[in-house]
């Protein structure tokens, strides 16, 4: 891992297009400003990790008995039809 020390107002550039700027430092909170191309998604790591965990959990569904999936499908169809005007 590359470790850099930066002061408030200083920047780091990643690749040719991504710039991370330290906007402010207050106690143990660092405020970052990130400039990235539109096609680059930027998220807090915790959010990313939560989705990753959810995707892993989702994989277990294909191990379930088919009957359980069919039953849920039937229930949802019923709920959906009932919700229709």
């Amino acid at each position: 891992m590359l470790v850099l020390s930066r002061k408030s107002g200083e920047k780091v550039v990643i690749g040719n297009e991504i710039v991370v700027e330290v906007l402010a430092i207050n106690g143990d909170v660092v405020k970052l400003g990130i400039t990235a191309p539109r096609a680059t998604s930027v998220h807090r790591f915790e959010v990313f990790a939560e989705i990753e965990a959810a995707n892993r959990a989702a994989l277990a569904s294909c191990e379930l008995e088919r009957e359980l999936i069919e039953q849920m499908a039937t229930r949802l169809k019923r709920e959906h039809d009932r919700a229709k005007p």
């Binding site: 989705i51 959810a54 995707n55 959990a57 989702a58 277990a60 569904s61 379930l64 359980l68 999936i69 039953q71 849920m72 229930r75």
Partner: peptide, 16 residues
Amino acid sequence: MVVMRADPRRSTVNLR
């Protein structure tokens, strides 16, 4: 993505 569990009440979907 759906997380289907044996207990249908615990089955969830990732809307986020």
